[in-house]
Each structure stands twice: as C-alpha cells, then as structure tokens.
Simulated scan of single mutants.
Amino acid sequence: MMKNILITGGAGFIGSNLALELLNKGYNVTVLDSLSPQVHGCNPNQSSPLYRNIKDKVRFIQGSVTHKEDWQKVLPDQDAVIHLAAETGTGQSMYEVEKYTEVNIAGTSLMLDLLVNGNYKVKKVVVASSRSIYGEGKYRHPELGIVYPDHRKDERMQQGDFEVKYHDDQLLEVLPTCEESKIHPSSVYGITKQTQEQLVMTVCPTVGIAGVSLRYQNVYGPGQSLTNPYTGILSIFSTRIKNGNAINIFEDGKESRDFVYIDDAVEATLLGLEKVEANNNVFNVGAGVATNIRCVAEMLCENFGLQVPIDTSGNYRMGDIRHNFADLSKINSKLGFIPKVSFEKGIKQFTDWVLEQEIHEDKLSYSLEEMKKKGLYK
C-alpha cells in the first residue's frame, strides 16, 4: 500500500493540482520544487497561485532536482515518486540547451542513481513524458500507407509551405499517434523528454521499481501560469488579449494541437500511480482531438468578449511541429481513462478564471526576439 508520495515540480500546474487531489484521497504528499521565477514570478508568496494553493498543505522543500542533497532530503520514506520537474519550453530549449539537458536529463539521472545505490522504499516512479517525442508524428501516405515524415525543412517554410510531406512531396493524412509510433523528436525539449522516459523505463525495472511514463499532450485549465512567455499557448494568447495586443498566429494558422483539461490530466496521472496495470507501461494522455490554432485564438476572444487583431503572419519557429493528437486506445483499455471535459467547456472554465486575474505583463515579444537573434524564429 503506497501512502507517501513525492512530487517533483509539485508547485507547477499539473503538480499542484495533483497534490491537492492526492491529499483529498488521504496520501501524504511531499513536494520538491525550485519555484522558478519564469513560472512563479519573483515572489511566489504573492505572484504564484499555484504555490499558494499547496503552501502549508504539503511538506514542501524548495530545491532543485539537479542537487543531490535536495534529493536526499525528500526521498527517504517515499513509496512513489511522480517526477514532473522539468524545463518545458519547446522554443526556449533550442537555445538554452545546457539548461534543458541539465534539469531534464541530469536531474532524472541523479534520482535514478540514488534509487539504485541507496536504501529507499520507492516502489513506483511515474515520469512526465511529452507528445513532443513523436516529432512530426504519424501520417498516412496514399500509396505507402503509414509513414513517419522527417522534420519540415527551413527552406520550404520560408516559402510559406508548412504542410508535412513525404520524400516524394505527396500530401499526407495526419493520424493520431499511438504509443507504438516512431519516436523522433524535433526539438531539444523533445529529446530530453525522450531520454527521461527511456532512463526511467530502463533503470527502474532492474531494481524492482515499477516505471510508468505518461506522454502528456497540451495540458490547460484554470491556474496555469499567465506570466511564462515560453510555453502554454492558451496563457500566452490570453495575456496578449487582456493587454489589447494583436495575436500573431504562426505559420498559416492551420497547425493543430491536442488540448487536455487539467482535471483529466490529473485523473490519468492518478491512474498511472494507483493501477497495477500501469506498471512498466507508457501511455498517451490527451483529449484525442485536434484543434487548430486559429480556432483557439478566435474562441478565446469570443469568451473574453474582447476583440483584438488575429494576424496569420507566416512566421515560424524552428523545432515546432505541425500537428499531433493522441490515440487513447491503450490508456482507455488498460486503465479505463476517458477524458471528460470537452475543449469548449474547458476553455470556458479557463477564460472565466483568467477574467478574475490581474493583467500581467505581456513578455511574448521579448521571448521571440531572443529566438530571432539566434535564427530560430523567422
């Protein structure tokens, strides 16, 4: 019987919501989190509702997964680790390479090294993987059947050709990615998530620890950071709308993502923790529905009752993918997971929450300028 649960990154969006649900179910929760200013602001006690939601409710240790002494503070007496701590911006990862590999890969390696060589009680490790490991994902070629296209070429995108094509330039039909789909990430972030997953799923079973990897799609909902300009498209667009700024839709606006509501993501994570059937398996976590980005911007404006220009600019970022949505057959059949919140309902709950928040500084232009200087935003 698992009772004591450690959540790394437990003051983050998924982690804090998960911590509260675990507490409701009677678990003892320890959180290790660095309280990164990029996510929580410079004074988390005032600027981070995520942190405030769990403060004084969990055993909280401010520290880093890259520091051995911090792991040694939190690992004793834990029955399971839910390893969510990570740097998460796809675009940012393409130029902060050392930071992303240090936190995501080295931090995970340090945890596993301690679990293998130390005297700990951990029985299960649930690691947050990502849809980004699929790269451009899974498609159907009209003649060849299932194919996994290479990353899109810069020279094609410069000409405004953003569609995913195969070697013969044949247009392809996008398909949901199943867990058996080819792994070929197109960003540093994706590479680090792939490595995290492989480390956990390789090392844990050798020492009798169950490993579970959850490949999250785009998780959204009330409470997500409105100040981080590097990740979370709903938050980025919302901050621009509330500041009266135009929304710049990259590419041609037809690129799509799978948006999974926070409550559904938490439920899937709990199933991964509690179900024996999850042991030593990887699962997609999503809504299983593709939503294009221009539609997202229009729905946000409608829900806020605020109209700002929505410009489809043709700009693009190196490392971004065109489409990805999840095949949920495996997590449904093995764990009984069915997402409950539609995007229409979820985005309404998200925008209702945003309207109650103060207007935050719009930092998107700064983040894009960083990428432009390095030739990664065009």
Rank of each mutant, 00 (worst) to 15 (best):
G137M: 04
N119S: 14
G135V: 01
L175R: 04
V125K: 13
D168W: 06
L175S: 04
D161K: 14
K138D: 01
K121Y: 09
R156I: 00
F162H: 06
C178P: 00
E179F: 06
V164I: 11
P149I: 05
H167E: 12
L144Q: 12
S130Q: 10
E180K: 13
N119H: 13
V127C: 13
R140A: 09
V125D: 15
E136A: 04
R152V: 05
Y166S: 08
K165F: 07
E143T: 07
P176R: 07
M157F: 07
V122H: 11
Y134W: 12
V125I: 15
D169K: 09
S132H: 15
A128S: 15
K138P: 02
E155F: 14
S129V: 08
I146W: 02
Y134I: 06
E180I: 01
G145S: 08
A128C: 10
D154W: 10
C178Y: 01
G135R: 01
H151V: 14
A128T: 12
H141I: 05
N117I: 08
G135S: 04
V125S: 13
N117H: 15
P149K: 04
G135W: 03
Y139R: 02
V164A: 03
R156F: 13
A128P: 01
V147H: 11
G145N: 08
H141T: 03
Y166N: 02
K123A: 13
E143A: 03
S132I: 03
F162A: 08
K121E: 15
E179S: 02
H151L: 06
E155A: 08
V125M: 13
V127G: 08
E163A: 12
R131G: 06
G135T: 02
K165P: 00
S129P: 07
Y166L: 00
R152H: 08
R156H: 11
T177H: 02
K121F: 09
H167I: 10
D161I: 13
N119P: 07
Y139K: 03
D168Q: 03
G137E: 02
K124L: 13
D150H: 13
G118N: 10
L175Y: 05
G137W: 02
V125A: 14
Q159C: 03
D150G: 09
K138T: 15
G137T: 07
E180R: 11
N117L: 06
S132T: 15
K123F: 09
V164C: 06
K124E: 14
Y148A: 03
D168H: 06
D168L: 09
R140T: 02
S132W: 05
D150S: 14
D161W: 07
G137Q: 04
D161M: 10
C178R: 10
Y120M: 07
H141W: 07
S130G: 10
H151D: 14
A128I: 04
N117T: 15
R131I: 09
V125H: 14
E173K: 12
E163N: 14
R140M: 11
K138W: 00
D169N: 15
Y166T: 01
K165D: 01
G145P: 06
V174Y: 11
H151S: 12
N117G: 08
D168I: 07
R156C: 04
N117E: 13
K165A: 04
H151G: 12
H167R: 05
N117K: 15
G135Q: 04
C178I: 01
E136H: 05
L144P: 00
K165E: 13
I146N: 05
S129D: 08
Y148P: 01
L144K: 15
P149S: 05
